[in-house]
Nucleic acid binder design. Structure first.
Ligand SMILES: [Mn+2]
Ligand SMILES: [Mn+2]
Ligand SMILES: [Zn+2]
Ligand SMILES: [Zn+2]
Lengths: 138, 138
DNA sequence: CCTGCTATTGCAAGTAGTTACAATAATGAA
DNA sequence: TTCATTATTGTAACTACTTGCAATAGCAGG
């Protein structure tokens, strides 16, 4: 299932473990943003020996390696999801409604950053806040 | 010094307090991003009775009210600064070098969001990650 | 298969940030 | 000025997240 990820890990000198595989599986199955606590809740049922510290370390690691995506969604807590389709989010400050935005919309911006500063931006999961159409009326 | 902020607070039914004034003063004097812990370090010297809980609550409050700006700068920790000129940041994942970007660069993007989804975006302090020119060579 | 190297984990203690609740104090009205 | 209202604070307990260290276990190589 995650053969490509395992191979990439090995090429980079890292190892695949049951813990990492489980976190990937959980995020894959969920198909949505999950908090570290939600993920820990799931791991406990399947690998009871796995600790919270390992969940956090695994999430940081998989994010660094680019296999999963992290996002700050307002309440301060980080959420994670499996990497796959490149997208960003619009979140309403008032009601929390979210809207996905394809990465394509940011590409010319990133290109501008590049020509202006030389920075090669690779933020593939940015969150923008504002007001949704409904909440603008109130 | 913060007369305008005090008046706005009162109009919205909130109060000015020595604690809030001190946090504003600290951020004003610093003129850069500060962590909650750095701010607490400063408040202790001037208002020793002020607690960490109040620092965190004050920072959240002032951010909600739009008087200060928050930013996630990679290490997971939030940093704050006084609101004033609208800008965003590019941060190098490898060496941490940062670059400011004027908000003007994002305006047409926000306008696109508006026509496409109806969302009125007001994120005035976005952080983008990538590689700076130097780190791209290595 | 074994074996050795060392990346990764569990553990336990530490730091960071949040929250319920009762006491305090900023404000507006008398 | 004085008083009443209630937003805000301090306290203390709680939850979230991090880290140093010794034990464990992937996996590359023989
Ligand atoms: Mn997402
Ligand atoms: Mn800034
Ligand atoms: Zn809304
Ligand atoms: Zn760099």
């Amino acid at each position: 299932m995650f053969d490509q990820i395992i191979e990439t890990l090995h090429q980079r000198g890292f190892r695949m473990t049951p813990q990492r595989l489980l976190v990937l599986q959980i995020l894959q199955d969920a198909g949505r943003h999950l908090t570290p606590q939600e993920i820990f809740g799931q791991t406990q049922r399947i690998l009871p020996a796995m600790t919270e510290a390992t969940v956090y370390r695994t999430l940081s690691f998989l994010t660094e390696q680019g296999f999963i995506l992290a996002a700050h969604i307002g309440n301060g807590q980080l959420v994670y999801e499996i990497a796959g389709h490149n997208h960003h989010h619009l979140i309403c400050r008032a009601c929390g409604a979210t809207q996905q935005i394809d990465h394509q919309f940011l590409e010319s911006l990133y290109q501008q950053f590049r020509s202006k500063t030389g920075y090669q931006i690779d933020s593939l999961h940015v969150t923008f806040f504002g007001l949704c159409p409904d909440c603008q009326k109130n």
